[in-house]
Write a protein that binds this DNA or RNA. Structure first.
Length: 652
RNA sequence: GGACCUGUGGUGCAGCCUGGAGUGCACGCCGGCCUGUCAAGCCGGAGGUCGCGGGUUCAAAUCCCGUCAGGUCCGCCA
C-alpha cells in the first residue's frame, strides 16, 4: 500500500473514530445534532435538496427505507442488460447500487439514484467497504451532469503525474484522498478557532494590502492605480499589525492568516500559506507556549481523537548537541555524542578540531565500503572536511573496539574511551565529524535523519507525533559582510533579560526570548516575546547597524505607537499547511491545499501568472522591460486553451 | 542563480546504456457477449508530432548540444 493510500485511509478512519459525536442513525431520518468540532459535523450534516441520505453513511439499520442519493459514478460492473452494479460516491463514501435495464452510465457522471436500501444477499457482503453490508435495489437513475471520459483515473490508488493532476485540479479534488485532506484541514481550522476563542483570543482581520518593509522575505508587490508608481505589498505575515493591536489593548489576538512570500517554492513551501497567528499582552514565554500547545492539542484531537500530546522543551543548545538541528525529529532514538574529551590530545590529525562529535548507528557495522564512501561524500557536501567511521568489534567477548581507517592513529585508551562514551557494542557503526561545534553537529544531525529514514522505517510509518518546543535561541545568527550580527528571528525579538549586559560586548552569545514549535522534524512555527521598551529596541537596532533615521523610515509608525503605552507582549505563528500535512500523513503541503502552484509558481489550471494588456499596464503606470523575450503564452490547461491567446479583450 | 531526477496513445510504465520500421505491457476508451460483481470477466477494435529545436549518422524514442515543463534539493525563506 502506498503512503498516499495509507494516509487517506487513516484520515478517514480518524473521522470514523471521532468519539465526540455518537453515531446517530445516519440514514434518511438523520437530524441535526449539537455541533461537534471539525470533520464530524461535515459527515453528520442532514441531507437536503435532491438527496435524502449520504452514500457513505448507509448501513444495515437503514435497510428497508427508500433512499434518494446524489453523487458521482465511481465504478460500474456491467453484467449485461439484466444486472449492473454502480458504485455511487459522494464526499462521505461509496455505496453499491444494483441497476437493471439499459442505462448510459459513465464514470464520473453526476447522477441521482432513487431506490430501496436492502441488506445484500447471503455471500455477497463486502467487508472491505464501509457500506458493504447493504446495497440500493430497484434503482431509478437520473443523469444530472453528463461526463466526458475523465483524463485520469480518480481512484486513490492511481498514481498520476502531478502536472496532470494540477491541470485538472477540480477532478483531482474529487478523489477521496484529497477530499479527506481538505475535510481534515477544515476540522483543524475549526478546532483551532474554538481553542483560541476558549482561551480569550479575539479573531481580527488585518490588511492584505500592506506597506513595504524592506527586510526579511521578499514581498509580492501590488501596484497602486490611484497613485501610479507607488506600491502596496502583500504581507509576509501580520507581524507588525498584530503588535499594533497589542498597543490598541485587544490583549489577545489571533487570526488564521494567509501569508505571502515571494521566495522559491519547496515541498513544504508555497507562495501563499496559512498561519495560525497570535499575540498576547502582559504575558511571558511560558504563557504563549501554553496557549499554542493547547490549540495544537485541540487540532490533533479533532483529527485523531482524544490522544494526549507531550510538549517537551529543549534549549537550542541542547537540541544542537543531542540532535544536530534546531528542528529535531524526536521519533528517531539516536543521539549525537560529544567525543572531544577522550580525544583532547589525540595524535590523529583528522580528529584535531575545536569539536568532535559522534553518531552511533546500531547495526551499521555491516554497511559495505561503498555505502560508507557515499556517506563520506554526503558529509563533505554538507560542509565537513571528512567523515571518520569506525566499525565496532568485540573480539573474543572482550570490550568493544574500533576498526576503521583512522583506528591505527588512536591509542588503545582513546579507542576504549570513545567506544565507551558512545555506548558502542559489537556490530555498530560509529561516525565522527571533527570541525567547529556547529558544523560537526549539523552534519551528523543531517546524517542522523537520512540514515534513520533508510534504517528505521518503522519509526516513520507509525502515526506517531513527536512535538517539542525549542527555546533559548541565539538572538543573532552569524554576521554579515560588514561584521554586523544578523537577527535570527526579527529585530523586535526581546533579548533574554539575563544576557542584556552582553548585547554590545558579546552579541553572538546573547540568547533571545524566542521559541519554535517542532513536530517530527518539521519546523511548525516560531514566536517570541517582543521588545516593547524604546531603550532596548534602540540598543538592538544599534547592534544590527540600523541608524535611528533608517529605523524611523522603516518602522516609524510602530516605534511611534510604542511611545503611547506599549504593553509587554509576545506571540507566535505556526503553519497550518504543515500541521495538516503531518496529520494527513502527507510529505508535501500541496496535498492539503486546494489549488496549489508548481515549483515555478505557475497555476497549471488557470495559466497564472499571465501578462497584462498594455491598457491595464498603462492604467497602473507600469511598463514591462523584457529582454526581447515575448511573455510566455504556453498552454496552461483548460482555461489557458480557452483564454490564453485572447487575453487583451478579456482581462478587464 | 546552481545540482540532480523525470518527460513514449487519455493514464501509468517498458524500450534508451549497446542507434536499425512505434505489431511493446497494463489501465481507460469504442463495439460485442455476459443475472451477484465489487480493481468484475471474456472476445474484438481504435488511439502515438516518442516534450520542443538543432546536431551527429545511410539511419535517432535511443547518442550529442540547446530549450521548455514537472519534481527533489542547495542558495533563498528577518
Amino acid at each position: 500500500m502506498s503512503r498516499h493510500e495509507r494516509s487517506a485511509v487513516s484520515a478517514m478512519k480518524a473521522q470514523a473514530n471521532q468519539p465526540a459525536s455518537p453515531a446517530e442513525p445516519p440514514g434518511p431520518s438523520a437530524e441535526p445534532k449539537q455541533a461537534p468540532l471539525g470533520s464530524t459535523l461535515i459527515h453528520s450534516a442532514p441531507p437536503a435538496g435532491l438527496r435524502s441520505a449520504w452514500c457513505g453513511l448507509l448501513g444495515p439499520k437503514d435497510a428497508g427505507s427508500q433512499v434518494r442519493l446524489c453523487g458521482w459514478v465511481a465504478r460500474r460492473r456491467d453484467h449485461g442488460e439484466h444486472l449492473k452494479f454502480v458504485d455511487l460516491r459522494d464526499r462521505t463514501g461509496v455505496v453499491q447500487c444494483v441497476v437493471d435495464g439499459a442505462h448510459d452510465l459513465r464514470a464520473e457522471q453526476a447522477v441521482a439514484i432513487t431506490g430501496t436500501l436492502r441488506l445484500r444477499p447471503e455471500g455477497t457482503v463486502n467487508r472491505d467497504l464501509a457500506t458493504g453490508e447493504v446495497e440500493v435495489a430497484q434503482c431509478r437513475v437520473e443523469i444530472l451532469g453528463p461526463a466526458d471520459p475523465v483524463p485520469f483515473s480518480l481512484e486513490d490508488r492511481a498514481e498520476v503525474d502531478e502536472a496532470v493532476r494540477l491541470r485538472h485540479r477540480y477532478l483531482d479534488l474529487r478523489r477521496p484522498r484529497l477530499q479527506a485532506n481538505l475535510i481534515l484541514r477544515h476540522g483543524v481550522n475549526s478546532a483551532l478557532r474554538s481553542a483560541m476563542a476558549a482561551q480569550g483570543f479575539v479573531e481580527v482581520e488585518t490588511p492584505l494590502l500592506w506597506t513595504p518593509t524592506p527586510e526579511g522575505a521578499r514581498e509580492f508587490a501590488v501596484p497602486s492605480r490611484l497613485q501610479p508608481g507607488s506600491f502596496y505589498v502583500l504581507p509576509q505575515s501580520p507581524q507588525i499589525a498584530k503588535q499594533l493591536l497589542m498597543v490598541s489593548g485587544l490583549d489577545r489576538y489571533y487570526q488564521i492568516a494567509r501569508c505571502m512570500r515571494d521566495e522559491d517554492l519547496r515541498a513544504d513551501r508555497q507562495f501563499e500559506f496559512t498561519q495560525l497567528d497570535m499575540e498576547a499582552s502582559f504575558v511571558g514565554r511560558d504563557d504563549v507556549v501554553g496557549f499554542v500547545s493547547h490549540a495544537v492539542q485541540a487540532a490533533v484531537q479533532s483529527a485523531r481523537g482524544g490522544m494526549e500530546l507531550g510538549f517537551p522543551t529543549l534549549s537550542w543548545d541542547e537540541a544542537m548537541d543531542r540532535f544536530g538541528t534546531d528542528k529535531p525529529d524526536l521519533r528517531i532514538p539516536w543521539e549525537l555524542v560529544d567525543l572531544k574529551k577522550p580525544l583532547q590530545t589525540t595524535a590523529a590529525k583528522a580528529l584535531q578540531a575545536p569539536a568532535v562529535r559522534g553518531l552511533l548507528v546500531p547495526g551499521g557495522g555491516s554497511f559495505p565500503r561503498a555505502r560508507l564512501e557515499v556517506l563520506s561524500d554526503r558529509a563533505k557536501s554538507l560542509g565537513a572536511a571528512g567523515l571518520a567511521w569506525f566499525k565496532v568489534a568485540s573480539p573474543g567477548g572482550a570490550g568493544p573496539d574500533l576498526e576503521g581507517p583512522l583506528s591505527k592513529f588512536l591509542s588503545d585508551q582513546e579507542r576504549f574511551e570513545v567506544a565507551k562514551l558512545s555506548g558502542a557494542s559489537g556490530g555498530d557503526l560509529l561516525l565522527m565529524v571533527a570541525a567547529t561545534r556547529r558544523v560537526a553537529c549539523e552534519v551528523l544531525g543531517q546524517l542522523r535523519v537520512e540514515l534513520a529514514r533508510a534504517e528505521l522505517k518503522q519509526v516513520f510509518t507509525k502515526d506517531d507525533l513527536a512535538f517539542c518546543w525549542i527555546v533559548d535561541f541565539p538572538l543573532f545568527d552569524g554576521i554579515d559582510e560588514a561584521g554586523r550580527p544578523l537577527s535570527a528571528h526579527h529585530p523586535f525579538t526581546m533579548p533574554n533579560p539575563h544576557d542584556l549586559d552582553m548585547l554590545e560586548t558579546d552579541p553572538l552569545s546573547v540568547r533571545s526570548e524566542s521559541y519554535d514549535l517542532v513536530c517530527n522534524g518539521w519546523e511548525l512555527g516560531s514566536g517570541s516575546i517582543r521588545i516593547h521598551r524604546a531603550d532596548i529596541q534602540r540598543r538592538v537596532f544599534d547592534v544590527l547597524g540600523i541608524p535611528p533615521k533608517e529605523a524611523e523610515a522603516r518602522f516609524g509608525f510602530l516605534l511611534e505607537a510604542f511611545r503611547y503605552g506599549a504593553p509587554p507582549h509576545g506571540g507566535f505563528a505556526f503553519g497550518v499547511d504543515r500541521l495538516v500535512a503531518i496529520l494527513a500523513g502527507e510529505d508535501n503541503i500541496r496535498e492539503v491545499i486546494a489549488f496549489p502552484k508548481t515549483q515555478s509558481g505557475a497555476d497549471l489550471m488557470t495559466g497564472a501568472p499571465k501578462p497584462l494588456s498594455p491598457a491595464r499596464l498603462t492604467e497602473l503606470g507600469l511598463q514591462t522591460r523584457l529582454s526581447g523575450k515575448a511573455p510566455p503564452m504556453h498552454s496552461a490547461g483548460t482555461a489557458g486553451s480557452l483564454w490564453g491567446g485572447n487575453m487583451s479583450g478579456l482581462d478587464r
